[in-house]
């Protein structure tokens, strides 16, 4: 099962009992995301120090004083590294989801619109890729391409795409059976026009919600890859990589284990809360959103 389907199962299936975040929580999460957005775009506005200027004399200082989150093994300011780490850390998850959603939607709609043979071909290949459980397809892709931001993004995109293909096709199918599309067919509108004007726009919103939910999962997956040494390269302050670097100093410097992980959790938690809220809204309108 892919990340998307996981997300779908985790969020859509138990729709009745699902956590409906109270408006206040959604607001707080939204504000947190805005702040994370600032850190993503202009880290220099928040971070007091440069992320990669080493100061070995002041290595492994505990939090406090001039260093809010302490310093790492080279005397770099952990808080600044966490802030500067926002972009590299989120790039993989967001990039992978965007790529997967785009490629998946196109392929899904194409499968439905392109005739029997194409449909069969796309869906069978999708089946094959769906047979790689969890992160394994991503790990296979990284093993082949080698580590790095681009390759890790491609790997996660590859593993999420099949889920989007299926979802997009299912959505498109629902839309195609709807009255207005039937009407358009009866009216003899060209096939391409129907796909572009009616099917695609109407199948999109639930896909977008699921993409948002998938971003959280993909960010965790991305930081896991980085943690294993498969993501961006040193001295990039990616959160997972920072945790991995700090592992040798756990007995002396607990702060190296805490803050980068906290950054991942806070970000993903905020995304999930906002995602849930949006999903709850959408569910009322689009019957297909729950799969």
């Amino acid at each position: 099962m892919t990340l998307v389907e996981t997300a779908a199962k985790a969020t859509a299936a138990p729709s009745r009992a699902a956590f409906r975040p109270p408006p206040a929580a959604t607001l707080v999460a939204g504000l947190a995301l805005a702040l994370i957005g600032v850190a993503f775009l202009w880290p220099g506005l928040i971070a007091p120090h440069s992320p990669d200027v080493a100061d070995p004399v002041n290595a492994l200082l505990p939090p406090g004083g001039g260093h809010l989150f302490g310093t790492d093994q080279l005397g770099r300011d952990t808080f600044s590294r966490v802030i500067y780490g926002t972009r590299p850390s989120l790039t993989i998850g967001i990039g992978a989801t965007a790529l997967a959603a785009l490629a998946g939607s196109l392929l899904g709609v194409l499968a439905l619109a392109g005739g029997r043979v194409l449909d069969e071909a796309i869906m069978r290949v999708t089946d094959v890729f769906l047979a790689f459980p969890g992160l394994l397809l991503a790990l296979l892709v990284v093993a082949v391409l080698g580590p790095g931001t681009t390759n890790a993004t491609l790997a996660l995109a590859a593993s999420a795409t099949p889920g989007f293909v299926r979802l997009a096709r299912a959505q498109a199918l629902v839309v195609r059976r709807s009255d207005y599309v039937r009407a358009a067919v009866i009216l003899g509108r060209p096939r391409a026009a129907i796909v572009l004007r009616h099917i695609l726009p109407n199948a999109l919103p639930p896909l977008l919600v699921l993409a948002l939910v998938n971003v959280g999962t993909a960010i965790i997956a991305g930081s896991s890859l980085s943690f294993l040494g498969l993501g961006p390269q040193a001295p990039t302050p990616e959160w997972g990589a920072m945790l991995s670097d700090g592992r040798d100093f756990l007995s002396t410097a607990w702060h190296l284990a805490v803050f980068p992980g906290l950054a991942v959790t806070v970000t993903v938690f905020a995304i999930n809360i906002v995602g849930r809220s949006l999903q709850v809204r959408f569910e009322g309108r689009t019957p297909g959103a729950g799969l």
Binding site: V53, P235, D245
Partner: peptide, 12 residues
């Protein structure tokens, strides 16, 4: 910790 030393050398 050679990767850390490497980053230190990189910074210097």
């Amino acid at each position: 910790s050679r990767t850390i030393l490497g980053q230190g050398i990189q910074a210097d």
